[in-house]
Amino acid sequence: MRYRVRVEGLPNAYACHCRDCQTWSGSAFSLQVLVPETALEVSGEPALFELTAPSGRLSRQRACPVCFTRIYNTNSARPGIAVLRAGTLDRSDELKIVAHIWTSRKLDGVAIPDGIARWEQSAPPEDLAALLAPRRITG
């Protein structure tokens, strides 16, 4: 299974340290980028897992049906936005991590560099959106 993201520039990434991201990634946090759902072209049929939160919001998780790597999710709280797992990008080594959320759940030993935005829980949507605006890579 492959995907393509039709956006200009490489999106900035954020790290989420919540328990769900720790559990679902099998790691200390999950790196993510936000892209318009319409900009995401997926070849093949992803495996789908739906989760309804206590609030009634629906999260639709998509994964590779062969290796079970979680690729992206959508959420009824953010219609039209896909939350893409940044480590699945071909150019993930070029990502700039601009924010950390749910740092109240951060594991000891994970250091966040000075000057990087951080929130103990979720970030205000407008603040996170401003930090995640795409940047151009030249050269």
Rank of each mutant, 00 (worst) to 15 (best):
A99W: 03
R85C: 02
A130Y: 10
P36W: 08
S92G: 11
R19H: 09
L128V: 07
G26W: 05
T88R: 03
S92R: 08
L34R: 13
T38F: 01
L128P: 11
R60G: 01
G26L: 07
T74L: 08
L128I: 07
R118H: 15
Y72L: 04
S25Q: 03
R62M: 07
D93N: 14
I71S: 00
L132H: 03
A111V: 10
R118K: 15
H17N: 08
I116D: 05
T23D: 06
G115S: 11
F29Q: 01
A130S: 13
G80K: 10
E120S: 14
A123W: 01
G56H: 10
I97S: 10
S92M: 13
D93E: 15
L107V: 13
P65I: 04
I97V: 15
Y72D: 00
V42E: 02
C21M: 07
E37Y: 04
A86I: 02
N75W: 09
P124F: 05
S122K: 13
L40E: 05
P124R: 06
S25C: 10
C16I: 00
L34V: 11
E126L: 10
L51G: 12
N73V: 11
H17I: 03
R78V: 13
P113G: 05
S30I: 01
K106Y: 03
S27Y: 01
S76R: 12
A82C: 08
E126Y: 03
R78P: 08
C21L: 01
E45L: 05
S92Y: 11
G56Y: 05
D90I: 13
V33M: 03
L51Q: 15
N75Q: 11
C64F: 01
R118T: 15
N75C: 12
Y72E: 04
E50M: 04
V66C: 13
L89I: 04
T88P: 04
P113Y: 01
T52I: 06
R91Y: 14
R19K: 13
E37W: 06
I97N: 11
A117K: 09
R70G: 08
G80A: 14
D20I: 09
E50C: 07
P79R: 12
Y72R: 05
P113M: 00
W102Q: 13
L51H: 15
Q61S: 14
I101Q: 08
G80F: 09
I101R: 07
S59I: 11
V33G: 03
F49D: 03
N75Y: 11
A129W: 09
L48T: 08
V83I: 15
A63K: 03
S92W: 10
G80L: 13
I71F: 01
D93S: 13
